[in-house]
Each structure stands twice: as C-alpha cells, then as structure tokens.
Design a protein around this nucleic acid. Structure first.
Length: 852
RNA sequence: GCGAAAGUGGCGGAAUUGGUAGACGCGCAAGGCUCAGGACCUUGUAGCCCUUACCGGCUGUGGGGGUUCGAGUCCCCCCUUUCGCACCA
C-alpha cells in the first residue's frame, strides 16, 4: 500500500525516538545517571507520584516535562543535577482494588509501578533510577516506624481521644487537613465526627516554628505561604475563666478581644464541651436538650459549617459570672462554637462581634456597648464604607424601634470599670495581665492548627510499632525488632474494619516489658508520613543502618527546586516541613526548611462532556491519552506542545489541533538539517565573520532562550526557538549565505532545543557531526554586545503619535536622529507650520517631538 | 464577606525600571505543488476609513476618570472571572 507523507514523517520521528531511547538505556552513564553527591549541584525534585492503575494522561504530563526540560538545561549548562524518582506506594486505592478484585495490594502496586516506569521511559524523561524509593517496602517503611518511636520517646507521638473526621466511604479516620471543607480529600464524601482514641503527632508544638519559617521561603509562591499561614492560624489574645457557681466549676474561654470583656453578656459552649453533661443535669427539659446536643454533634461537618448555616443554640438555664463585671450571664450551647478551637467555649460580646450580635438578636441576649469609636465621624465613615478597614459597623432597628449597633473596630473603652477611657490596644494588654494576676487566665496565643492524626484503620500502610499490654499499657516495639512487617496475607472483605485485625499471627504478640501476652496496634500510618521525608531517603536509599547518612544529606539537601501541584499546599508541604524540624531536633539534618524553592505548575484543562472547561481527568471524561498521542506524534512533539501551551504556573487549556504547530516545527528542524547536509557543506564549519545580522539573530536567540529557561518561561523559549528556525530557514534559502553561519545556526538551534525535544535534538546533533550527547556538549554562549541589533529602529513620534520609523546605527546621537527625522517626508509633513515645544529622546528607541 | 491573581485579535498567548501593542503558534484566506489531500511550501491576517493602486488616517489592551511629551504597564473608582479562606472567638 502506498504511504502518505504523514505516515512517512511519523515513521521517521518514531524511528528516531526509539533509537535514542535504546541508546540512553545502553549507555546510562552518558545519558541518564547523575554523579554521586559531590557537594555541589542542584537537587531537582518532582512530587512523589502515586502509582494508580490508570495510565497517566496529558493532564499529568506537565510536571514531568517541565522538570525534565529544567533538568536537561541545567545539565547542559554544566550543573551537576540530582533528579531521582520513586513511588508513594501505600494508599487506599490499592486496598480498595484488593477488596473489589481480590488482587493483593502489593501485587497491583508493583505492577502499576512497572507500568508507570514504562510510561516515563516513553516520554524521554531522565531520572536517576539508581536512587529509586518505594515506600511500601519494609526497607523504607521501617524508618517510618523508627521515626515514630523517636517521636514517641519525645512525647510527640501521643494517643488521645478526640472527635475525629470519619469518612463513611473510606471507612477510616482522616487528618483535619485531609477533611478540608468537611469532605474527604480523596473521595469527597462528607465526613462525620467520631469520638475515637487515635495516634496523633504533635505538630501543634511546632506551630510557631512552622510559622516563623514561612518568612524565609522567598522562593515559594506567595499563595502557598499565605495558605500555610492561614492554616496555622495564629491568634493572640487572652484566656479568661468564667465561674459557674451552681456547679462549683469554671469555664475557660479564649478571646482575641479581652478589651471587650465588660460587654460579654453570655457564655457559649460547644455541644462537645466536657462540662455539657453536668450543665444539663437537673434541667427540666434535659432529654430534649440532650437530643439536640446529640444531633448537632453527629452532624456532617459540611452541613454544620456550611455558609449561612443558621445559628442554633440552647439556653442551659445556668448562669456564669463575668469575671470582670461580676454580673451573672446566661450559659448557652451553640452549634457554631467549635470544640477543637481554643477551649471550645467563648464569651459572647454582641455589641462588638457580628457573629455574637446575630446570635444575641435571635435569642434576646443583652447587647452592652463597651467600645466607642475614637470619633463620631469615624463611626459614620464605617457605616458608609463598611469595608476596607477591617472594622465594621452594623446598625439594626428592632421591632420595638430600639436601635442596636455592632461595632467591631478599635476605639475607646466605656462602661468598663477601671479600664474605661483606655484605648482598645492598651486595654487588651491590661485586662489580660489583670486576669493573669487574679489567676483566672492571662495572655495567650492560640493556633488553628490541630495535631496530625496519623492512625488509619486500613491494611495497606506502615504498621504503627506499638503494642498494647493489659498490664503495661502502650509499649513501643523495641528498635531492634523493627521493622514490624505488614503480614502478606489478610482477608480483604471490605466489611468489618481493618483486615489486619483478623490476622492472628500479627495481632498476638508478647509485651516487650513483661513478656506477657499482648496485642499489636493494627492501625497503620497516614501515607503522608511516607512522603514527609522521602526526599532525604533518595540521597541514601539503600542504607540499612539509618534512614540516611547525615553526611550525604548535607551534600544535597535541602532540595534546591521542588516541582509539584498546588493541591499539596497545606497537606504534604506542611507535614514535610514539620518532619524536617523533627529531624533537625534529632540531629539528623542541619536545616529546617526541606524545599528552598517551590514551583507550582498549573493544571491542564479541557472541555468536559458536562460542557465546562475543567481540570483534565479520567473521571470527568475529558482526558487525552498520552500513550496514544506519543505513539502517533512522538514524545518530542507532545513535550514541545505541553510546554508551549502557556505560562507553566497558570492553568492551560488543551487544544487538540494546537499540537500541529510544535509538530511542524520539529519536522522543519529536521528538514532544515537534512537540507543543509544535502548541500555537501561542512556541518562543523564556523562563520566567516562574527558581526553579521545572522550572527546577531543567533546571539539574540541564545540570550532569550537561556533567560527563558532560567525564568521557567518554557512557552516563550519554544517561541524563540521557532524564530531561530525561521532564521535558519531563510539562511538555507539564501544562495549567498555563509555556510559556516548556517551550520553554526543549526548547531546552536539543536543544542537549545534539547531540553524541549531530547530525542530529535540528539539525532540532529549527531547528523551535524556531534560526537557526544548534548547533555555534555555544553550550552551555547552569547556575546551580549552581539545580542543586540546593529541598527536601532527609532520610533519617531510627533506629540506622542508614531509617525515614522527610522533605522539608524546603534548609538546614534539625538542630533543625528533629529536631522534624519526632519529629512523624512512623513515626519516633515507633521512639523510643517508648527512650533516645536520640546523633544524627548530615548537612546536607540524613540524620538518624540512635541509641537503646537 | 475577606484575601490574592487575572481581564490584550476568531483562539492560546507575547510585550510591564512607562517608550513602535499583538512576538510565536493555532485557526482562517489566497496562491503554489499535486489525480487528490487532513501533507508540504509561499504570502496575508486587530478593527474601521480613504485610495484604481501606492501613500495615508482614525480607533484599539474589561468600563470610567487621572498623572505624563508618551500608559496594556502607574494612581483612583467600577464591572467580570478564577482561586484560596470563611461562624477560629
């Protein structure tokens, strides 16, 4: 059958790519592996991928193409680069797959890894596979267990009872970070609260250090830093105790506004508060109240925290004493009070807090004004503006015609006993200090961040190395007994909880302390533990005596450039920062911040069947098969197109037709080289003259492409490569052109192209007489003087309007250009009969003659 | 509601110490080569107007105002979109 030009072209491209893939594998030393740590170099890292059974599609490719382009560029410029790859191999999908299909998680995971590795191979991405890490292997996870023991020793791994997020679909608990917005991070099922005893890592002890470190991350996206800062959520204020005489007890509240305490007209507790059962004791409607408490407590978080959720409360009938006014205030329970924040109780100041105001209006709680804006005009201003200052004023007219106001700004205290007339800020300090003196609280800093819940009621994860003994309680597994190996067989029924519980040989053990019978912990660790330190294991992956050799780690870490998606802004990146601090405290590393620079690439989007432009994903039905595209057009074209799509930090919409541009470009590069070779000229020839327009175009291209790569501006790098090809093509079409210039332009083009299209560039390099891989052939240098046009194109404006362009020698003086401009008919026309007011001259760029 | 980023041809996007807006590519159009072409090559392509043609003119970077010889870029107000946070006391 007769072959079309298209299939011939594709066959040739695919032949070239296959050839180079083979070459790379045959000679890893020259093309792939990086040097051993040598004290200098760049540690380039991609976020650890999870080997799911699904093939990676176009939507996933950007991170890897981007990293590889950067990797190759740096290697070409002579930098030693460490760029490893491994697998986040534990995870829920593998276990669910086992339940559905009866295939063991380990079997499917290892098969997925092999498949994914093969995909990477077909993309031409370079990784140092000699440093591969697989987190589900005992050689790796034993160190998770080792770290856990160290944390336990230091009191940073604790077992405590708490209301936790339970995902009814995954049948496991989730860390707060994984239940953001009240839905499960993985399956989006609304989580429900559950009171359970679980293992936590005390990340809250590190809140201040995690916050401080954010200030040093100047090479992180501002957005991620802000998100982490909000997540840690530091607030400065005071703790205050409200006594409840009828119970001979007191309730501690936290407030950021102790200056408003004289306006606190109610004490409101979360339904989860420990004192609630005692408060309800003896209440005439106890049963009804208890039912209400139970219903609020079992509500899905997504419902309870929903926007505009109705404030719902109940009066306990008890009273507390405002410690500053000495007056009785009612004790309420309300759904909006969060048990885990602060003390799970708050003082309501309706006159100066919009939320309390709303609650007070609904339930008739008194509103007592204790802060007066500094000036009346200011108050009116707030009323008008209502925003922009952070202060706020709300004015409402009640049914009885009485006007009530809520002012949340700063001001001067009134009706506040000895504190009256003080400013908000000094009163805050004075009242907090007074509380401290009286032993009823005092100044206090609190964080929104909560401890990291790491227990998971699942099989496929790192066993938590703890043993429970009736006599000795929770006893850590002795270090010498590590790893606690996950038993190979477990019943994956999908019913009745964690399969590990049913493995008697695993569960039944002896207590390390008393040698009596004991039970092993069957919960496994959150997989984010695995990814919290993997970047250090890459450096020393086969160490069997320690998680890593601190000396080797000192050579490479911290990671110089980390690349990954924004979805890990607060999960993985916060945990990894926390772990690094622990490792520092253990004396294993010398730094606190694991990732010096972070880059978040944007998602690839595409129109989905639902008619919206959405993130490309298999489940949305808008994914494009990378395997198929590569089999058809070759990896280089796909790489070039994905990088050409747009600024890598922004989302980019996939277009099915768009790939033809980069595809044509690469084919034209090959065409230009072949055409040149057919002329019989020496491909290694040098230009006869240095200072020619062609040489200048070449130097400009080198300059721009180099700067683009350094700035992660891959899309403009491709554009500038296209321009350089157009120059080469016109040299080829010009019979009078210097063959040395043409050859040099082509060789330069091929070198610059390598980070984008490694296969084709290596082939073209070889065709042009290159003896070594482009990875070690050096990066073209440019002469800054030559990288400027010889002639300057001057825009001549008359009163700010461009009337002519003059091509003059670079460095021409104002006088020369003015004379030239006057001689230009297009300019002269506008000058005729006008009076010159002034002249603006920008060297080599512009001349503006202002007339009237 | 709060915070951040963004808004440029039919499309993706270039260009911001203020200095020739639309690089590069897609799409489209015309021509060439072809039995043919979803291949390849060449040329054109912001809009409007004038002109036989050449030359030329006006408008134009979400809207309105301002600073400046000159604004996509700086300042003020407004609109829209996306993202993040959101009863955190």
């Amino acid at each position: 059958m007769y072959r079309t030009a298209t299939t011939m072209k594709n066959d040739e491209i695919l032949r070239i790519e296959a050839k180079w893939r083979t070459r790379w594998e045959a000679d890893r030393a020259a093309f792939v592996d990086t040097a051993e740590p040598a004290g200098e170099g760049t540690y380039l890292l991609v976020m650890l991928p999870y080997p799911s059974g699904d093939r990676l599609h176009v939507g996933h490719a950007r991170t890897y193409f981007l990293t590889d382009a950067l990797h190759r560029f740096l290697r070409q410029t002579g930098v030693t680069v460490f760029c490893p790859m491994g697998w986040d191999a534990f995870g829920l999908p593998a276990e669910n797959y086992a339940i559905q299909k009866g295939i063991h998680p380990r079997t499917s995971t290892l098969a997925n890894i092999a498949a994914m590795k093969e995909q990477f191979r077909s993309w031409g991405v370079l990784y140092d596979w000699t440093k591969e890490v697989t987190t589900c292997e005992p050689e790796y996870y034993r160190w998770n267990q080792w770290f856990f023991l160290k944390l336990f020793e230091k009191g940073l791994a604790v077992r405590k009872k708490a209301a936790v997020n339970w995902c009814p679909s995954c049948l496991t608990v989730l860390a707060n970070e994984q239940a953001e917005g009240g839905v499960c991070d993985r399956c989006k099922t609304p989580v429900v609260p559950r009171e359970l005893e679980q293992w936590f890592l005390k990340i809250t002890d590190y809140a201040e250090r995690l916050l401080d470190g954010l200030d040093t991350l100047d090479k992180w996206p501002e957005k991620v830093v802000t998100m982490q800062r909000n997540w840690i959520g530091k607030s400065t204020g005071a703790d205050l105790d409200f006594a409840i005489p009828s119970l001979s007890a007191s309730v501690r509240v936290f407030t950021t506004r102790p200056d408003t305490v004289f306006g606190a007209t109610a004490l409101i507790l979360a339904p989860e508060h420990a004192l609630v059962p005692r408060l309800l004791e003896g209440h005439p409607k106890k049963a009804g109240l208890e039912a209400w408490v139970a219903s609020v407590r079992s509500q899905e978080r997504i419902v309870r925290e929903a926007e505009g959720a109705e404030k719902d409360g109940r009066d306990t009938g008890r009273t507390a004493i405002n410690p500053f006014t000495g007056r009785e205030v009612p004790v309420w329970l309300a759904n909006f009070v969060i048990a885990e924040y602060g003390t799970g109780a708050l003082m309501a100041v309706p006159a100066h807090d919009t939320r309390d105001f709303e609650f007070a209006k609904k339930y008739g709680i008194p509103i007592v004004k204790v802060i007066e804006p500094e000036r009346e005009e200011k108050k009116e201003e707030f009323l008008r503006k209502k925003e922009g200052t952070g202060d706020f004023l709300r004015r409402e007219e009640g049914e009885d015609g009485a006007v009530s106001e809520c002012y949340t700004g700063e001001g001067r205290l009134v009706a506040s006993g000895p504190f009256s007339e003080m400013s908000s800020s000094s009163a805050r300090e004075a009242i907090a200090a007074e509380a401290g003196r009286r032993g009823i609280g005092g100044p206090r800093v609190r964080y929104r961040l909560r401890d990291w819940l790491i227990s998971r009621q699942r099989y496929w994860g790192t066993p938590i190395p703890m043993i429970h003994c009736e006599k000795d309680g929770w006893v850590p597994v002795p270090e010498k007994d590590l790893p606690v190996v996950l038993p190979p067989d477990a019943p994956f029924t999908g019913k009745g909880g964690n399969p590990l519980e049913k493995v008697a040989s695993f569960v039944n053990t002896t207590c390390p302390t008393c040698r009596g019978p004991a039970r092993r912990e069957t919960d496994t660790m959150d997989t984010f533990v695995d990814s919290s330190w993997y970047f250090l294991r890459y450096i020393d992956p086969r160490n069997s005596r320690a998680p890593f050799d601190p000396n080797l780690v000192r050579e490479w870490a911290p990671v110089d450039q980390y690349i990954g998606g924004i979805e890990h802004a607060i999960l993985h990146l916060l945990y990894a920062r926390f772990f690094t601090r622990i490792l520092k405290d253990l004396g294993l590393v010398t730094f606190e911040e694991p990732f010096s620079a972070l880059f978040n690439q944007g998602m690839i989007t595409r129109l989905s069947p639902a008619g919206r432009v959405e993130k490309m994903s298999k489940s949305r039905g808008n994914s494009v098969s990378l395997d198929q595209l590569i089999a058809e057009k070759g990896a280089d074209a796909v790489r070039a197109f994905v990088l050409f799509l747009g600024p890598p930090e922004k989302d980019a919409e996939w277009s099915d037709e768009g790939i033809s541009g980069p595809e044509r470009f690469l084919w034209r590069v090959r065409g230009a080289v072949e055409r040149f070779l057919q002329t019989g000229a020496d491909p290694e020839a040098r230009p006869a003259k240095a200072d020619t327009p062609a040489a200048r175009a070449r130097h400009i291209a080198v300059k721009k492409v180099t700067e683009d790569f350094r700035a992660f501006s891959f899309h403009t790098a491709v554009a500038h490569l296209m321009e350089l090809l157009n120059h080469a093509a016109s040299l080829l079409g010009d019979a009078g052109a210097d063959a040395g210039e043409t050859a040099t332009t082509l060789r330069t083009l091929v070198k610059l192209l390598h980070p984008i299209a490694p296969h084709l560039s290596e082939e073209m390099n070889e065709r042009m007489g290159g003896k070594k891989s482009l990875l070690v052939s050096g990066w073209p240098e440019f002469d800054p003087a030559l990288a400027e046009m010889e002639t300057a194109s001057i825009a001549v404006q008359i009163s700010g309007k461009v009337r002519a362009e003059l091509s003059v020698r670079r460095g021409s003086s104002e006088k020369e250009v003015v004379t030239a401009a006057e001689g230009n008919p297009a300019v002269a026309r506008w000058l005729e009969g006008k009076q010159r007011v002034k002249t603006i001259w920008v060297q080599d760029r512009l001349l503006n003659i202002v007339v009237k």
